[in-house]
Design a protein around this nucleic acid. Structure first.
Length: 512
RNA sequence: GCGUUCAUUGUGUAGAGGUUAGCAUCUCGGGUUUCCAACCCGGGGACCCGGGUUCAAUUCCCGGUGAACGCACCA
């Protein structure tokens, strides 16, 4: 069975169409027993993901980030240094009663029983449980042995083989290039760098389609920066009046249910955030998501409370999107990692190349890192999900033109006369020649073809009719309101290019 | 991992211990059609896997696998 039903009608319709129209398939491989939480991007999904990635790339490049690509596999020491080996596993324990058989995370179980975790030595958990005679919280039977659940994926390499780790995040692999980047940047900080690629996590229970998978693509931008620069950050000055919706840790603790929309400047004045450079990253995340036509009411930035921060984070905010299907979900984490990473890599590698000159003469410091980390799959899922609009007559996929898989369609009004088709083919080929994604379709009635393409996010359709044969014009139809104008075939490529790059709008097209 | 529910063409479903496994949608070919899922003709496509009961199982039973949801988990 494919991605299946929820009770909600709209949700199941969205999930059905995602699969039916070739965006997302899975769990994969469907013809064998699928692997939990593994999905395929179908033809339209792959095109859309490419576009989404390029949209992100373009935005990062606009802000002077450079892209790098690092290996997926790295020796264990890298992840020891990063802190992942130490923290990226759970201690689990299972009830021995076969009827219960429940599995618990030891730390949360003990916490719920009222133990103070700070007083427990985790190397002696087993002894602790035996000493305290701890029983299953659900059925009071005795518990089995404490086991480690590793959340990282490992693999074997070499002859004889030794164990390597598949990266659980891209960020760390980016930091490893710091000495090289520092030279590339001619020893100027801050360094702006990003990486897009796969990461792997042995998630206990993958759920909710692309929202929780074991292999997933990340796009993580890093600003490697001196502490003084974090407070005096030029890009921030340009954007300090930009307003974002923030839900601070304090507000959450005071049970304020709603985020407030305030400017970056105000957020700093009110000490909701501390550093201008960090504030600017919140802007970047917000702006990127808003640019995908995701309604602002469905976007917010939520600060991590102290107990949910990752081991490396000084401050952490999540950009969350309110999914039509799954509710508020994180798509982007913005982390103030301080100098945690580079300090650790300095210690573990014993190389002294990670120091840079500080402000005072002779001072050597380890630079700080500000990180913005997107889950590409999640962003993809939300951009797609939010775009579905079910109208009376039609299903509309209202995707941003820059990420929609196929922005243009070419239709001969009818199959006959054949000349309609030859004009259409020519236009189609011209579009493709000019790197403009399009489809050509002559099957069925024109109305049917409009309906079909509306459902996959086509923005504009060019239709060749009998008048086309006389005066070299075609109609262009706007998906949004189904309105049409006539345009000259000669000017069509230029027009499509301009529409694609938001250099013109449908309204701007002159009537002829 | 636990629990609940479920498993029939691509999708949504009907169905009975013995059926050419039905319907809608989809899809393909042809006809028709001068702009919004029209119509006509013709074609295509399914009983999750293994075992048991039975003369006979897609249907009943057991097991497996998978899915949705809930619990737990989510660096």
């Amino acid at each position: 069975m494919l991605i299946c039903m929820t009770n909600d009608d709209e949700s199941s319709k969205i999930l059905m169409l995602m699969s039916h129209r070739g965006f997302i398939w899975g769990p994969s491989p469907e013809i064998y027993n699928p692997v939990k939480g593994s999905y395929e991007f179908g033809p339209l999904g792959k095109l859309m993901k490419n576009n989404l990635e390029n949209y992100i790339r373009k935005l990062f490049r606009k802000h002077n980030f450079w892209e790098v690509q690092c290996p997926l596999i790295s020796p264990e020491i890298v992840w020891k240094a990063s802190g992942h080996v130490e923290r990226f596993f759970d201690y689990i324990i299972q009830c021995e009663n076969k009827d219960c058989n429940n599995l618990f995370r030891v730390d949360t179980m003990l916490e719920q029983m009222g133990y103070d975790l700070t007083e427990i030595n985790f190397n002696e958990l087993q002894e602790f449980i035996e000493k305290e005679k701890i029983k299953c919280p659900d059925c009071d039977a005795s518990l089995g042995k404490v086991a480690k659940q590793n959340l990282m994926v490992t693999s074997q390499l070499g002859f004889p083989s030794s164990e390597f780790i598949l990266r659980p995040e891209t960020a760390t692999t980016t930091y490893l290039t710091f000495p090289r980047l520092y030279n590339f940047y001619r020893t100027n900080l801050p360094i702006f760098v990003f990486q897009m690629g796969y990461a792997f996590r042995n998630e206990i229970s993958p759920r909710k389609m692309l929202l929780r998978t074991r292999e997933f693509e990340q796009c993580e931008g890093q600003i490697i920066i001196r502490p003084d620069q974090e407070l005096d950050f030029e890009p921030y000055e340009e954007k300090k009046n930009y307003k974002i919706k923030m839900w601070s840790a304090k507000a959450q603790e005071q049970n304020d249910k709603k985020s407030v929309k305030i400017s970056l400047k105000k957020a700093i004045e009110q000490k909701i955030i501390q550093k201008p450079a960090y504030a600017w990253l919140l802007y970047l995340a917000y702006d990127l998501v808003k640019g995908l036509n995701i309604p602002e009411k469905n976007i917010r930035l939520r600060q991590h409370k102290n107990d949910e921060k990752a081991h490396y984070a000084h401050d952490a905010w999540d950009l969350e999107i309110k999914s039509k299907i799954y509710g508020w979900t994180e798509v982007c984490g913005i982390h103030d990692r301080g100098n945690y990473d580079l300090t650790r890599h300095q210690e573990y590698s014993k190389k002294k190349q990670l120091f840079v000159p500080g402000l005072k003469k002779g001072e050597k410091i380890i630079p700080h890192v500000l990180e913005i980390a997107f889950g590409v799959g999640r962003l993809f899922f939300f951009a797609l999900e939010q775009a579905f609009k079910f109208e009376k007559e039609r299903n509309l996929l209202d995707l941003h033109i820059q990420i929609t898989p196929v922005p243009f369609a070419v239709f001969p009004l009818m199959k006959k006369p054949i000349e309609l088709q030859s004009i259409g083919r020519k236009i189609y080929e011209d579009l493709i020649e000019n790197d403009i994604s399009a489809i050509y379709d002559s099957a069925g009635s024109i109305g049917k073809r409009y309906r079909r393409t509306e459902e996959i996010g086509v923005r504009y359709a060019f239709t060749i009719d009998h008048q086309s044969m006389e005066d070299n014009t075609v109609t262009i139809r706007n998906i949004e309101d189904m309105s049409q104008k006539r345009v000259k075939i000669d000017e069509l490529i230029q027009l499509a290019t301009n529409l694609l790059h938001n250099k013109t709008t449908f309204e701007d097209i002159p009537e002829i």
